[in-house]
């Protein structure tokens, strides 16, 4: 990071608070259309998708299977509705085994 973390935190805090606070000031004057509302609610899904792929392949730049197998383990548990922390622990455990054994 070539910037102080406090700037990052402050910047993120400001851009996060503004959309939360605007309707508190301008009650009933902000009415996103259903289409706009849908667009905004879809962003977290598309963000996660783009965050996962293709970066997961480069978890270990020399060993793509580290990302693929660890990610698959987490994906299976997530599909079975396991809590986030269980998916995280399982993926770490799988990769640890891969590093130790192979």
């Amino acid at each position: 990071m070539n910037y102080p973390v406090i700037f990052l935190i402050l910047g993120m805090a400001v851009v996060t608070y503004i959309p939360r606070a605007l309707p508190a000031v301008l009650i009933d004057r902000i009415k996103p259309s259903p289409k706009v509302g849908k667009f905004l609610r879809l962003i977290p899904y598309t963000a996660m998708a783009a965050l996962i792929f293709p970066s997961v392949l480069y978890v270990d730049t020399e060993r793509p299977e580290i990302g693929i197998i660890g990610g698959t383990a987490a994906g299976i548990l997530a599909w079975l509705n396991c809590p986030v922390i269980i998916c995280v622990i399982a993926a770490i455990a799988v990769d640890m085994v891969l590093y130790l054994v192979f």
Partner: peptide
């Protein structure tokens, strides 16, 4: 050392159930 996968596991854990 095996932590690099954790972030992706967290995203999958948030995304897939929903």
């Amino acid at each position: 050392d095996s932590f690099s996968i954790a972030l992706y596991a967290a995203f999958l854990g948030l995304l897939l159930p929903s």
